[in-house]
Design a protein around this nucleic acid. Structure first.
Lengths: 129, 129
DNA sequence: GGTTGACTTCGAGTGCCCTCGAACTGGAAG
DNA sequence: CTTCCAGTTCGAGGGCACTCGAAGTCAACC
């Protein structure tokens, strides 16, 4: 029931596996300021807490939705400044949300082109058969 | 009514503007084999036909949906081989279509995370107010 | 107590997709 | 006829996001 049993603590390798990034990337994210310096054990090895992992997970979603690392860094900086940046962080997310929606709309348009082409190929194949 | 008035013929700059790429990129695409060698005028300048532009437009959609240049080249090679590759090209598009659908589903999931965060920030801001 | 394997830092290298600078050419406008 | 602009080729350069190699350390297991 003490802190050490209650708190999860993962090595860089374990954390990497859970969030679907490589250990290289995790260290690089830290170096780039996307992640606040991670705690270390007595041997100097990184120990990732649950909240570290949650943060990393969020980063993977931002990344996957096309947010540049530069903007993720800006977001991380805001987060480090505490509650007074809540508004700015929300604004950042709202702006990003719009971009994602736009991207989705774009993909839907592009999908139509793909469908059109697939159909055209189908018809052309039939023509030839 | 002769061919020269009926056929449109654009310079690299004009073609670039129409498809939303730069002249650099258009030349590079040609060099990379994404576009078959474009016709030239008497001075050696590229002249893009309507079908060149259509092809380029299609490439922009493939690109925008995340197809790597490598795959676009493969597709271009198939297209250059004529009707006998219709099936292969359709297969290529169908596979790509699946990837795009998967990508869209992913984005929808990610959007939920964004929405959740936006809401969390909103609630936290209210808490503080 | 030696071997193994995962960790550490640092800087260099990679892959993708353009993007550009330099030097030149040729057609069109004044 | 000069000026200008948009084109030409070639190879080099750049931005982004990792990815890796080297050299070393340390805890854990047999």
């Amino acid at each position: 029931m003490d802190i050490s049993t209650r708190e999860m603590s993962l090595t860089v390798g374990e954390a990497a596996e859970r969030v679907g990034l490589t250990t290289y990337t995790l260290r690089w994210y830290e170096q780039e300021g996307l992640v606040a310096p991670v705690g270390r054990d007595s041997a100097g090895r990184r120990r990732y807490t649950e909240s570290d992992v949650n943060w990393l997970f969020l980063l993977t979603r931002l990344r996957r939705t096309g947010m540049p690392v530069r903007d993720m860094r800006r977001y991380a900086e805001l987060a480090r400044q505490g509650d007074r940046t809540l508004g700015a962080r929300r604004a950042l997310f709202e702006a990003h949300r719009s971009r994602v929606l736009a991207r989705m709309a774009e993909l839907e348009e592009d999908l139509k082109v793909l469908d059109y082409k697939i159909d055209a190929y189908r018809r052309a194949e039939e023509e030839l058969a």
